[in-house]
């Protein structure tokens, strides 16, 4: 595993309804939190916004990871110089444990569609991503994690599988992977591939963080809504990951219909139990191998 993404245990995607809990301390069930970068970046013509003040208070109680949605790493357009400068400044202030964004594009021609749009799996797309990821890492002075997105469209002219694509991007740009297990499941359902084939192909030593989240089942397809509990098949996939990957920082991501803390915490504890059981299993196998 890349050293800068050492295992930090169980974390949570921190959203406003739960801010008060982390302003007053830190629940024992959580070791770190992830926040959406854009919610704390200055607005146009502003130097700072109040959410950043809130974040700095939270930061005193718990380590923070910054997770962005607007870097648009896969866009053919140059990266936004303004965005990158503001991200760098925020990172210097917050000192996050790591910074992440997505393997996608969010718009072109200065327009932001505020969605994680799919890329074709082509050499050209790899080149664009590698160029942009490298530029970001150079600007920030650190490796970043890039997340696999769930998708509803694949392109006819793709030249390879998604997992082959990710492998090449990560190898050439020397970045880490934020593995969203729910996104793997959603995409597998929507495009008809085996999620285990996908997970087996991911470079284990590059995975620095795991997302678990819920989705909506529309019959013919799944939609990554992040507004439901983690589904049982995704829990099964997560268990498989913990049994086949080194221990990786894991968090629950919930963006809509955010439940009471106790409900969310129950999922965090379930993730912790799965990790613990898998860790015991690893230990047993290591001991058996020696004996």
């Amino acid at each position: 595993m890349l050293l800068e993404f050492k295992d930090r245990g169980i974390g949570v995607g921190l959203r406003p309804p739960h801010y008060p809990r982390f302003l007053n301390g830190k629940p024992n069930s959580v070791s770190w939190v992830e926040v959406i970068t854009e919610n704390f970046l200055p607005w146009s013509n502003e130097t700072r916004i109040r959410p950043e003040q809130t974040l700095m208070k939270i930061r005193q109680n718990v380590p923070v990871a910054l997770h962005g949605v607007s870097l648009s790493l896969g866009s053919v357009d140059p990266l936004s110089v303004t965005y990158l400068a503001r991200l760098k400044q925020l990172a210097q202030t917050v000192e996050p444990i790591w910074i992440s964004d997505h393997l996608c594009w969010t718009g072109t021609g200065d327009k932001n569609l505020h969605d994680l749009l799919p890329l074709p799996y082509t050499e050209e797309a790899i080149s664009v991503l590698v160029r942009n990821i490298s530029e970001v890492q150079k600007a920030l002075g650190r490796r970043i994690l890039v997340e696999n997105v769930s998708s509803y469209a694949e392109f006819e002219h793709s030249e390879m599988k998604e997992w082959e694509f990710i492998n090449e991007v990560v190898r050439r740009s020397d970045c880490g992977i934020l593995l969203d297990v729910n996104n793997v499941f959603v995409s597998a359902f929507n495009h008809g591939f085996d999620p285990l084939e996908y997970l087996n192909a991911i470079p284990k030593d590059r995975v620095g963080q795991i997302h678990l989240a819920g989705h909506s089942n529309n019959g013919t397809h799944l939609v990554d809504t992040h507004d439901a509990p983690v589904s049982e098949p995704v829990w099964d996939l997560y268990r498989w990951v913990t049994e086949n990957f080194p221990l990786v920082s894991t968090m629950i991501e919930r963006d809509g219909k955010i439940p009471e803390w106790e409900t969310l915490e129950a999922e965090l504890l379930r993730a912790a139990r799965i990790r613990s059981e898998s860790n015991e299993s690893h230990s047993t196998k290591r001991i058996a191998a020696v004996l």
Partner: peptide, 13 residues
Amino acid sequence: SPSTFASIAEFSR
């Protein structure tokens, strides 16, 4: 006026 902002929160401006 499609959004040109990093944060969707600013789109209401």
